[in-house]
Amino acid sequence: MRAIVAIASTTVGEAIRRKVLLIILLIGLLFLSIAPGLGGLSPRQETTVLTSMMLGILQLTSAVIAIVLTVYLIPTEIERRTIYTILSKPVQRWQFLVGKYVGAILALGLMMLLMSGVLLLTYYLLQRDVSRLGEIAKAPLFYFVQMSLLAAVAVFFSTFVSPLVNFFLSGGLYFIGSMLNTIYDTFANSPTTNPAVKAVASVINVIVPNFANYNIQNPIINPGQQIQNPTAYALFTTAYGVFYILILLIGAILIFDKREV
C-alpha cells in the first residue's frame, strides 16, 4: 500500500509540473471566465445557455486533461527507463500501475476541483443565486467519475499501444460511449430496425464503457424536470464506474504483467 501511495504522490507532483496540462487547464479556466458573455445568444434563456456552456467547457477540458495525462503515464516511464529503477525496488508491477492510475485521477480531481470552483463562482457572481449552486455542483461530481473511467480506459490502452494511438483510441471510445444511450435508444425504439441489429446494439450497449450515464446535465440546465430518486442513480452510476475501472485495471495488470519492458 505504501508503494502505491508513494507512486501516486509522485505522479500527482509530475502532473502538476507538466506544462501541457497546465496550458489546457488555463484554457479551460479562460473559457469558463468568458462564457457569461455568450449567454446573450438566447435572449430569454441566458441562464440556460450559461449553465450549458460552462458545464460543457468543464466536461470537455476535463476529458482532454484525463486523456493527455494518462496516455503518457506508462510509455514515458518505459521510454526514460525510470521504470527499471522503480521495479528494481520491492514494488510489483500491479502496484506501479495502480499507483500511477491513482496519482493521475488525484491530479485530475485537483484540476477539476479548481475548474468547478471557478464555474460556481462565475455562476454566483452573475446570477446571485445560491440555491442552484448545490444542483450545479452535482454535475462535476458525476463528471469526475466519468473522467476517472476515461483515465482507466487510457491506462488500459497505454499498456500495449503508443501514446498517439492511445489518444485517438481513448478519445474515440469516449465519443462513442458518450452517445451510447442515445444510439441504443434509437435502435431499440425504431420499429424498422432488424431484430439482429437490435441484438447487436444491446450487446454493444453493455460491453462498451458507457460515459453517457454521467451526462446528467439536462435537468440541471433545464430545471423543473422531476427526478425520481437521484441518490440511487448516483450510487448506481458510481458503482458502475468503480466496477468498470476495476475491469480495466485488472485487464491492464494482466497485459502489463506479460509485457517486456
Binding site: 435508444d185 450497449n205 458507457n210 446528467i216 427526478i227
Partner: peptide, 15 residues
C-alpha cells in the same frame, strides 16, 4: 447494473 439499474433511470430522468 447498466442494463437494469442505470439505463432505465437515465432514459426516464436524464435523457
Amino acid at each position: 447494473l447498466h442494463a437494469f439499474a442505470i439505463y432505465p433511470r437515465w432514459k426516464r430522468d436524464y435523457a
